[in-house]
Design a protein around this nucleic acid. Structure first.
Lengths: 157, 157
DNA sequence: GCAAGAACTCAAGCTCACTTGAACTACAGG
DNA sequence: CCTGTAGTTCAAGTGAGCTTGAGTTCTTGC
């Protein structure tokens, strides 16, 4: 664990500083740490200290959340970062690319929805046979019992 | 179907039928009714009966949820539908158009995110001054407590 | 007329992503 | 040394969006 790895300005940040700079509440940061999304070391007096790079992790978490990922999934992604060294450009690149496809999917999904909606505006949702949105709902029913709620995704349709 | 142009011959549906056709659990339908998203009349024996058009309301709710709207907002939209008559094509059109812009915004937001991400992949998130995602986090203000916007993305998705 | 199954109510429970509160400790400035 | 601000832990609370369970009643088919 070469500490010299980090520039001589080995400047650790308190939870308050991180909270302020990231816009994430201290309570949320503690929660994230609990969940294994970020890490800290402690001072002699047991106060958290974060590396600067933690800000990047947090930015990643926030961005990923906006894509619609759950914290558990985000943790999964972050876990693939090296534990022993500060993540490199390549590390972040790989990660970013990995959810870039998620982003694309999500965008595509919303665009499909928009197209359906356009059709819906056209048909005025009056024609039960024609309206995509309407029929989408009806089709869900055909997906049998079992795990209900969750299948809003309708992937591949 | 000749049935469609006979509005007076109301064919009411039980909660089970609606649940089956919409793919939404009966418990959720009761919940929706509680929240004022749908309505029902009751039989002599106090069982719910729904109009066929309720299926459309439910389809609307589901679609709107996928856009990221909260139930309260969706209720707001649905409340603008006429209470006294079955919604017309124009009614639905207006509603659909109203959240079509929401959809566009949402898509645009994700696309911005994607662009930032592309830049991020390029810069490898190494340049703290340059990385958009990073700086975005720095400026992110407060959002209210509770669940975050996007977890409307549904568990299991 | 009766059993099975569908529906009813109401309260409580669950997941997610946090926040809040209580009670206490650490650290920095005058 | 004192005070105030920032930080600590742990437990419980919050809000959205439902589900589950218990106990009861309606409806349907034989």
């Amino acid at each position: 664990m070469a500490e010299e790895n980090v520039p001589s300005k080995d400047h650790w940040l308190s939870i308050g500083e991180i909270a302020h700079r990231s816009g994430v509440a201290a309570s949320a940061l503690r929660f994230y740490e609990d969940q294994g999304l970020i890490r800290s070391r402690r001072t002699a007096g047991n106060q958290r200290q974060y590396q600067r790079s933690t800000l990047r992790r947090i930015a990643f978490v926030q961005a990923a959340q906006r894509v619609g990922l759950a914290l558990a999934e985000i943790k999964g992604a972050l876990d693939s970062l090296p534990d022993d060294r500060t993540p490199t450009r390549a590390d972040w690149s790989r990660l970013s690319r990995s959810w870039r496809s998620r982003l694309d999917e999500r965008i595509a999904e919303l665009e499909r929805l928009r197209d359906d909606l356009d059709g819906c505006i056209g048909c005025g949702c009056l024609s039960l046979q024609r309206c995509n949105l309407y029929n989408k709902a009806d089709r869900l029913a055909e997906r049998g019992p079992g795990a209900r709620i969750l299948n809003v995704g309708i992937p591949g349709e």
